[in-house]
Amino acid sequence: MMQNKSTEIIVGMFVAVGIAALFMLAMKVSNLGDFTDEAGYQVTAEFENIGGLKVRAPVTMAGVRVGRVASINLDPMTYNAEVTINMYSQFDNIPYDTSASIYTAGLLGEQYIGLVAGAEEEFLQDGDVIDLTQPALVLEQVIGQFLYSKAEGDE
């Protein structure tokens, strides 16, 4: 019976270590650690072009993460991209006339949404729409424009 008990203790330790490893993967390795999405509020923004923006991409203001992209749809009327953003609940004082742009982190990095605060007294509420948006820079377009203006300048 003694042997029985020690087996059970060792198995218990094994299971605990395994669960601890899973916990470490969840908290330390993955982004589950900052999982406060559910508690926040949702706003939407329409972009002419979102480039390579993905669901769950970060939404930042002055470099601080304030939310995440929840979903991306195509507006059937305007043919613009309609992006739903989950804002973290502690950022509940963001002005109503805030503007949103899509940036790229580094040269090859992931795309994210950057917010720039406006000056209104009223704050964004659940279900509001951000009107001021700037589309993602698509590299081909930028190069095309550059070459075009260069050619114009030469003449």
Binding site: A26, K28, V29, S30, N31, G33, D34, R56, P58, E110
Partner: peptide, 11 residues
Amino acid sequence: MQAKTDFYDDI
């Protein structure tokens, strides 16, 4: 690592 590893999709 935390930014790019997703709990549901990866782990």
